[in-house]
Design a protein around this nucleic acid. Structure first.
Lengths: 211, 211, 211, 211
DNA sequence: GATGAATGAGCATTCATTCAT
DNA sequence: CATGAATGAATGCTCATTCAT
């Protein structure tokens, strides 16, 4: 399932996998190449040959992980014509993505340390340049159509994904009693309630222009 | 303002402050004691004399920071008898706490690396043992009274603070166009909508005993 | 001659040799890795790569040195069927072993500091488990045959090797005027006199149960 | 009992005692002043005030300990007119001195590390300048009188005290099954046998001058 | 491609010692 | 005399990285 590790030889896959585990367990700075070597079964030389070192490894994981997340989210959002269904699909995508590759989720959700930020900056900026405008445009249209409350652009992500994100964080830390699946419906409800147009107004704006 | 650094000599205060800046800028593992020394103006020996090293320093900051946050949140929650006002005060407290000491907020919001987690585990557990039951009990009462929607216990934090938390994260990363103050009202609205009892039902449960 | 340093690359041999010199000149605790590096011509990294540090180095020298000493002593003891010749061979072995590698002798004769003791404990115990019973059994047989005076087991080593050991100590400290070779005969005489069966009694016990 | 620690205030006594324990447990180089402080209950400042630091402390213990040992040995040797009784008294003194202050014995018996050797050199040389000639002169006279076998001067100490020394070493390391007291007789026997004039000769040289 | 010995800059930490109170 | 905060040189050790095989 983890797209990051596809299209590569077994050796490279093993290295990426080992590195991801180390990064999520100890953090980027605290992970040693020796540790990755031990877990992956590869040699130091191999790691450098394929990825150029610890930083290259982390950058690869980060960028490919982010690409996969964004692609999935856009698909969830854009596939359905109905606003409520889309919002619920977003929440669902977020939680299932975490569930599908918890290590990758941990890694992407953490603060990138300086070194890693620099190494990924350009590629991340490029991904975001495609991603955010599409998301914001989608929201815009739904507000125009009266399906969603208007909200400052900066707040869409916090309001739509903050609760799911926060729950995922607790779940990844093993600090929840209920499962991601069990939380899905509740989080979708709460999220939809947070952004749906107020009932009175909605009808007005949805009907009156025409009538 | 930062209570963490009170009750200490100037020297110790300077060390804590320098350490916090380093930790938030570079991360715990990537911070060197030499860097803390340079910023604080203290000697290496002094740092070890007072805090026992990098880890002791981080633990002190973390635990005292957490204590302050929790105390403020409980106060916000419990001071007002009205559910809506309390929820709005929680959001407000969260955002103002971030605004009041952004470095400390960054530090507390990041994933604790293994070493630091071990060093703080016992003291954090103790703080949480007092904190969470009080919060959950408060929620419980408001659900009973029909002011709030019922929600699995694990979801209160994500739903109530997830959006604010996520916005704070973006703000701290310098990736928002609007200020924390400007977002306060919107986040409070969204949060209140996410947890308020449904209008129809609420009236029912509050009034209906009669009809 | 020093078996310790055999079966290794030149680099490793050089490191062991330099370390031994440092340990005997300054003591284990007072020796710095930097000093070993300078003397051996190796890099810090190499020392750690091969031996894991100062402690590993000292442990290797100690255990292999002890193994060599014990093997030589057993050979000296067991090769000759005659008690007197064996005892004299023991003394000779002890002194020649010191002469053959004075640094190693100094190192093995000193008190192991706590750290080193812990690092060698298991391996030393194993060596001793093979060594002491063989020596004590040999003594036992010679007492039975009437060649040696009976002596509590704890006293064989002090009585047989104490004088040679003490002389070696003085010699290694440069505080003797005569050489190890010159002392050999005298020490062998004194040692033999200290443990040979008493003349009168021996004849008695060998010939005349009657007297 | 330990004369070293007499004639001093309680505080100083406590410091010396604590230092001796540390030195014998960890070795001079591995002992930290902080450790001595903790054990003695004194302050860092006090230790420096009275003894000038770790080195001064060790030197004091070493020199005063050596003085006491030598004084006792000379007394044992010279008090008795009979050679055999004197030799036996020497052995006895050695073992009882070890038993009376095992820590001090361990400390004096170990190799002095460079730093300590330099700090004690002058005072030790002075003590030895008085001690060794008196011992050697005593031996000389007994050889002349035919009581002892002639022996190169360098060998008297090894032959007379080597066995006792070696036994004491084992005893201090906890590696003997019998006590010092129990070993006393046996060690005295063995030592006396090692140095007594041969019986035939002795009678000759002792009797013939006269008739 | 794969391997692992070798390198050495850089780091956390220790510890003897000083000195103001 | 006693105290302990402050100092910083010195040390053991780690670890990313190179490169010859």
């Amino acid at each position: 399932m983890p797209a990051v590790r596809a299209d590569r030889g077994e050796r490279q896959e093993a290295i990426l996998s080992a590195a991801l585990d180390c990064f999520t367990e100890r953090g980027f700075a605290a992970t040693t190449v020796e540790e990755i070597r031990k877990r992956s079964g590869a040699s130091i030389g191999s790691i450098y040959h394929h990825f150029g070192g610890k930083e290259g490894l982390a950058a690869e994981l980060y960028v490919e992980g982010l690409r996969g997340y964004q692609a999935g989210l856009l698909e969830a959002l854009e596939r359905k014509p109905d606003a409520e269904a889309s919002i619920r699909a977003m929440v669902r995508h977020h939680l299932r993505w975490v569930e599908g590759d918890p290590s990758l989720a941990k890694f992407l959700m953490g603060r990138r340390e300086t070194e890693l930020r620099l190494a990924t900056e350009a590629r991340v900026r490029e991904l975001n340049r495609d991603f955010f405008p599409r998301v914001e445009a989608w929201m815009e249209r739904r507000v125009q159509s009266g399906a969603l409350r208007p909200l400052p652009a900066d707040l869409w992500e916090p309001v739509l994904l903050g609760p799911s994100q926060e729950f995922a964080r607790l779940w990844l830390a093993g600090r929840t009693r209920i499962s991601l699946r069990r939380a899905e419906r509740e989080l979708a409800d709460a999220t939809w309630n947070a952004v749906r147009a107020e009932r009175g107004r909605r009808r007005a704006s949805a009907i009156s222009p025409r009538g």
